[in-house]
Design a protein around this nucleic acid. Structure first.
Lengths: 197, 197
DNA sequence: CGTTATCTCTGACACGCTGTCAACGTTAAG
DNA sequence: CTTAACGTTGACAGCGTGTCAGAGATAACG
């Protein structure tokens, strides 16, 4: 991570390149097949298994790095959706659309515990997202768009849970993706106590 | 399960007794520590690891048996809560109380994927419960207590998801158990479009 | 009571995956 | 060109799962 250590440790461009290749491969493979073996990831990166361990001390830590990367991508997309202005309800709508696309891209997001190291990873994944969603809910509550008798923190957890449930419905084939998106949107508005149009 | 096979295979009471001991131990150990090793379960049952395999071919199948047993207990408790009559809303209240107690007793119910063999186990666990809940919701919708514009099937999934989220809040120490129960109840009523009192 | 099939136990083994190590090439930085 | 960093090969230990064979207990049955 840092070459600022006291020693005059020469960093080789080769190293960072291969570390990046491993991380990219891990994002692709683990994103689609949580629980994939290290061997598989190494092969995808065009590298040996031991090289993976040279950059990431253990499988759980590699998973953590993957989660961080996906989270960063999610946060960026979410911020873009939030800065477009409009009603909080409209922002929420865009927010859900973006999240929905991410869920399609990374099935890992639907099976959090399948590859995670521990509860630490789950927090790491949810914290920045939850923070933004909570701000949005609080804004809607003070503006009167949403009812204020349930705490924003709980509503955040509930929303995430509902999102996971909706993802399950889709991947289980019980509903289509667009049906589910609509139903999820209505459910969340109800949960927030929003004035339904 | 059946000694009705054509051959006259002598069944020894010893066998069933030890199989039951293994299952009991598995329920205790896996209920509290999903992901526990077979060795641990065997020790808890006062039996060798190989004996466990003598009764349950593989670890996943043992987990399935455990899930079936806990599910049976849950279904029994749920049926009792349902048969007490009253408003659907009141039934729902009792339903949640019972579920809440079960969650306390079996942390396994909160970490479904931690020990499960595959999606089959999850269905196995949820199907009988979901069936009963769906009947209850449908009853509430036709009686006018609940709004009818969201499908009962989806509301069932959403309710289960909300329950898991609430359980997480408690075990993460972010809310007390009784606080969460109240909040969960209100959230579900909102989700169902119930006339709030 | 004695025979017999069933069950448990001990001990050992193969397999797969994770993580580590040393030795030998390779490649980039100075 | 020299040197330190890096990748690679091959081997190994550890752990958990699942299997097997043989010896010893024990319940069922005549």
């Amino acid at each position: 991570m840092s070459e600022t250590a006291g020693g005059r440790r020469r960093v080789r461009s080769d190293g960072r390149r291969s570390a990046a290749a491993v991380l990219d491969a891990a994002v692709r493979v683990l994103g689609r097949h949580p629980g994939a073996k290290v061997e598989r990831i190494a092969a995808e990166a065009g590298v040996t298994r031991q090289t993976v361990y040279a950059h990431y001390p253990s499988r759980p830590m590699l998973v953590t790095a993957v989660v961080d990367r996906i989270t960063a991508e999610a946060v960026a997309a979410l911020d873009a959706a939030e800065s477009d202005g409009g009603t909080v309800t409209e922002q929420l709508r865009r927010w859900l659309d973006v999240t929905w696309q991410l869920f399609d891209r990374y099935p890992l997001l639907r099976h959090p515990s399948a590859a995670a190291a521990g509860p630490a990873d789950s927090d790491r994944q949810h914290a920045p997202v939850a923070e933004r969603l909570e701000r949005m809910i609080r804004r809607g509550q003070v503006s009167g768009e949403f009812d204020g008798s349930l705490s924003p923190a709980w509503l955040v957890s509930a929303t995430i849970a509902l999102g996971h449930a909706a993802g399950e419905e889709v991947s289980a084939g019980r509903m289509t993706s667009s049906q589910t998106a609509t139903v999820l949107y209505r459910s969340i508005l109800r949960l927030y106590g929003a004035r339904e149009p």
